[in-house]
Computed example of a mutant assay.
Amino acid sequence: MIENINAYLIKDEPYYQPTGGEVDLFMAAYRLRMPMILKGPTGCGKTRFMEYIAWKLQKPLITLACNEDMTASDLVGRFLLDADGTVWHDGPLTLAARYGAICYLDEVVEARQDTTVIIHPLTDDRRILPLDKRGELIHAHPDFQLVVSYNPGYQSVTKDLKQSTKQRFGALDFHYPDAAVESNIVCHESGVGDDIAAKLVGIASCSRGLRGRGLEEGISTRMLIHAGALIRDGISPHAACGLAMTRPITDDVDIQRALDGFVTAYFGP
């Protein structure tokens, strides 16, 4: 099983540009094995940040994208039938706690609240995970850390962490980088030149000004990278921006027209 956990090691350094003191703060939290919350808009770099941290620490990173259908068994594990009969299979949280990985629960507020309560014993001084179905009590490996993320822009009464859960964590706020840093990221990740990257970032900045005025969320850094890669491969800027940026984030014709106007302002008619 140790070989299995090593499959979650990140071998090559992920490209990540710090925007403040977030790396040093997280490293300090890891030394205390403090559970952490990463808060920020979609596509702003939370997952890449965790990949970079796991590489820097040389610790396995087990990521689970949470959803409203996720059950407790999806987290901790279940009995399954195979050729040898009924066999227990650890879930991602159990695997991380047992063997000392970082467990990253992405968009944790999408999971049902009764499911997230399972993490409580792991996020206080006990650092234990009861497996009731198996009759086992796991004491978390010394290297284990739990990290969760969510987008505060999509919070609601029905989709939020309970206070009893939030207060068990430290938290870092993530935002889209400033224009110069974001342009560098787009250049590096997509392969376009500085001029194209700066224009894409300008369009994204305009779109983010529409948040709450027709858009739930502006164009993300991830979308800029996709558009840049299309342009690098010979797709026209207008077509690339439509495919990767302006059409995915809204179905509203008037908002799409406004976004197209931003594209024209930067790339011309």
Results as ranks from 00 to 15, higher is better:
residue 191 G to V: 11
residue 191 G to M: 07
residue 98 R to F: 03
residue 139 H to P: 00
residue 64 L to D: 01
residue 64 L to N: 00
residue 61 L to W: 02
residue 161 L to Q: 09
residue 190 S to I: 13
residue 91 G to T: 08
residue 190 S to Q: 10
residue 136 E to L: 11
residue 164 S to H: 06
residue 215 L to T: 12
residue 43 G to L: 13
residue 38 L to W: 03
residue 98 R to E: 13
residue 129 L to V: 07
residue 26 F to M: 13
residue 217 E to M: 11
residue 215 L to Q: 08
residue 123 T to M: 11
residue 6 N to K: 06
residue 253 V to S: 07
residue 242 G to F: 02
residue 244 A to H: 05
residue 149 S to W: 00
residue 178 D to R: 07
residue 60 P to H: 07
residue 210 L to T: 09
residue 133 K to P: 00
residue 55 W to P: 06
residue 230 L to W: 05
residue 225 I to K: 00
residue 37 I to M: 15
residue 11 K to R: 13
residue 44 C to H: 06
residue 8 Y to H: 15
residue 32 L to A: 05
residue 134 R to M: 14
residue 127 R to T: 04
residue 71 T to S: 11
residue 218 G to I: 04
residue 147 V to I: 14
residue 85 G to R: 04
residue 127 R to F: 06
residue 143 D to L: 06
residue 113 Q to S: 15
residue 251 D to A: 11
residue 5 I to C: 01
residue 161 L to M: 15
residue 188 H to C: 01
residue 256 Q to T: 13
residue 184 N to K: 05
residue 2 I to L: 12
residue 178 D to F: 09
residue 253 V to P: 03
residue 56 K to N: 12
residue 249 I to K: 03
residue 57 L to G: 10
residue 94 T to E: 15
residue 132 D to R: 12
residue 48 R to V: 12
residue 185 I to T: 03
residue 230 L to N: 03
residue 49 F to M: 13
residue 53 I to T: 05
residue 266 Y to T: 09
residue 117 V to G: 01
residue 50 M to I: 10
residue 60 P to L: 08
residue 237 P to Q: 14
residue 53 I to M: 08
residue 182 E to S: 01
residue 38 L to F: 11
residue 90 D to L: 12
residue 253 V to K: 04
residue 75 L to T: 04
residue 205 S to I: 08
residue 168 R to P: 10
residue 99 Y to L: 13
residue 199 K to W: 03
residue 158 T to G: 00
residue 89 H to Y: 06
residue 91 G to W: 06
residue 164 S to L: 07
residue 97 A to P: 01
residue 64 L to I: 08
residue 202 G to I: 07
residue 126 R to T: 12
residue 166 K to Y: 11
residue 1 M to P: 01
residue 131 L to K: 01
residue 183 S to R: 03
residue 232 R to N: 14
residue 113 Q to M: 12
residue 238 H to A: 15
